[in-house]
Design a protein around this nucleic acid. Sequence first.
DNA 1: TACATCTATCACCAATTACGAATATAGTCT
DNA 2: AGACTATATTCGTAATTGGTGATAGATGTA
Lengths: 128, 128
Amino acid sequence: MPLSDELLHKIADVLKAMADPTRLKIIHSLHNGELCVSSILEAVGGSQANISKHLSVLKRAGLVDCRREGLNVHYRIIDDGVFTICRNVCDSLEERLDRERAAVVSGRRQMEEEEWGEAVMAPSDGDH
Amino acid sequence: MPLSDELLHKIADVLKAMADPTRLKIIHSLHNGELCVSSILEAVGGSQANISKHLSVLKRAGLVDCRREGLNVHYRIIDDGVFTICRNVCDSLEERLDRERAAVVSGRRQMEEEEWGEAVMAPSDGDH
DNA sequence: TACATCTATCACCAATTACGAATATAGTCT
DNA sequence: AGACTATATTCGTAATTGGTGATAGATGTA
């Protein structure tokens, strides 16, 4: 499976569309169902123009869809898979923290074993 | 769960690091274990400087780690979670295709029902 | 030492992106 | 029609990104 350039590009496009804190916040705000722009604006904060632009990015990427209802436009997540992806990233981040914590612990132990840890570690009072 | 800005930023950073076709290709090349830069270069293509820079991006984002062995530097994926994330994105893309195909089919049916489909659809001989 | 190899970094350019301010558009109400 | 509301788009700008060629650094070998 050579993994075609086109597929790679499509995957990258989806990830790029998600790779922004404001857009993640928007996605999160839509977790419980559709919202109109003003509600998203309220939930996420920022300027109206900016949110509107981020929404158009998400739409172009095929992550959200919208429908008009009178004056309001309601946006919704097309595919709940985005939430799965977010959760997976969070899981990875958590695992990373675990690893880093383990590394600190084993590093400290190693320093103590080598008998030059005390001078380094003593003044500290834990993680920061 | 207000989802802190810091967490959102971290999630975005991981996604941003993955959101590039060349870097996805690099990640894919490391699927079966570590590789030195020249092997990655061989698998991915492109200039040495460019690949090196992409590797440093992945490293800064905490997705890969490396170790020196003589002249060579071997890179490896730190957390297999990246593969899960890629697979999830692919799943989403597949679901999207299914949806689009279904939309085309139902659209065609609707056109035929409305009796102006024939003129539009007749000359065509399927998807292209 | 000098030299070759592998990798990282620098300097630069083009393209993209995010943002705010202002403006345009679409729909509603009188 | 005109006024009003909700949303989208355009424009200018600063920051970031992806790419290249040249060069620097690190390591091994004669």
